[in-house]
C-alpha cells in the first residue's frame, strides 16, 4: 500500500481541534445573538465598532489557536517525532497542516464575513458604496492569516509566530488605512452603490494572489527542508 496518509493526518488534527473549533463557533453564535439583540438600541458608531470586534474576535482567535496547536506545539511538545515516524514526508506533513487550517479558518472567516455584510449593509448601517472596502478588509484579514500560517509552519517557533502575529496586526491596520485614503476607493465608500472600479478589483485580485502565493511558497520552502526534527 503506498497511498498518502494526508487524509489520516487531517482527520487526526480535526479530532484534536474539534473541541476548540466547537467552543469558538458557540462563542461566535452567542456574540452574533448579542449583536442582534442590541442592534437597534445603540448608536451606529457603537454598532460598527462593537460589531466588528465581536465578529472577528472569536474567528481570528480560533485561527491563531489552531495554527499554534497544529504547527508550533507539534514541534514544541515533541509529538512531531511520533508523526514523522509514520510513512509521511515533510511535503505531506505540510499539505496536511494546510488542509486542516485553511479550510476551517476559511469557512469560519467566510461565515463571519457574511454575517458582517448582513449587519453592515442589509440592515442599513453603511451605504452599499462601502461593499468593496469591507470586502478588502475581510480579505486582508485572510491574507494576514495565510502569512502567519506560513511562518508558523516554516519556523514552527513560538517566538517567531507571536512576533509575526503582532507585525501583521499592525501592518494590516496600516494597509487598510492606506487603502481607505486611496482616492478611487475613498470617493465611493459613502456612496449609494458599490463601485468595482479597476483599483478596487486590482486590490482584491492582488490580495487573492498574495494569499495563493504565500501558500505555494510555503510548500516550496518546506520541500527544500532536509532536517525536520
Amino acid at each position: 500500500m503506498s497511498t498518502s496518509i494526508v487524509p489520516q493526518l487531517v482527520g487526526k488534527d480535526l479530532r484534536l481541534l474539534s473541541r476548540i473549533i466547537l467552543t469558538f463557533v458557540v462563542v461566535s453564535l452567542i456574540f452574533i445573538a448579542i449583536l442582534a439583540a442590541i442592534w437597534d438600541h445603540v448608536p451606529a458608531v457603537v454598532q460598527g465598532n462593537f460589531g466588528f470586534i465581536l465578529l472577528i474576535g472569536p474567528a481570528g482567535t480560533c485561527g491563531i489557536v489552531m495554527l499554534m496547536k497544529t504547527n508550533v506545539l507539534e514541534k514544541e511538545k515533541s509529538t512531531q517525532a511520533f508523526i514523522m515516524s509514520l510513512p509521511v514526508t515533510v511535503k505531506e506533513f505540510t499539505r496536511a497542516k494546510l488542509w486542516v487550517n485553511l479550510p476551517v479558518f476559511g469557512l469560519f472567516w467566510a461565515a463571519i464575513s457574511a454575517v458582517a455584510f448582513y449587519f453592515a449593509f442589509a440592515r442599513g448601517l453603511f451605504p452599499l458604496g462601502g461593499v468593496p472596502f469591507v470586502t478588502m478588509v475581510f480579505l486582508g484579514g485572510f491574507v494576514a492569516y495565510t502569512c502567519i500560517l506560513a511562518v508558523s509552519l516554516v519556523s514552527q517557533n513560538l517566538g517567531m509566530t507571536v512576533l509575526c502575529i503582532a507585525l501583521f496586526e499592525m501592518a494590516t491596520s496600516g494597509y487598510l488605512w492606506a487603502i481607505a485614503f486611496l482616492n478611487p476607493i475613498s470617493q465611493h465608500i459613502w456612496g449609494a452603490v458599490a463601485v468595482w472600479n479597476p483599483t478596487a478589483v486590482g486590490i482584491v485580485a492582488a490580495q487573492l494572489l498574495v494569499a495563493v502565493s504565500v501558500i505555494v511558497v510555503t510548500l516550496l520552502v518546506q520541500n527544500t527542508k532536509r532536517d525536520f526534527i
Binding site: 484534536l16 515533541s78 517525532a81 511520533f82
Partner: peptide
C-alpha cells in the same frame, strides 16, 4: 517507514 516501528525516549504522544 511502512515497515519501521520507531520509539524514541524524547518522542511524545498527544
Amino acid at each position: 517507514k511502512r515497515h519501521i516501528g520507531f520509539v524514541a525516549e524524547d518522542m511524545r504522544l498527544y
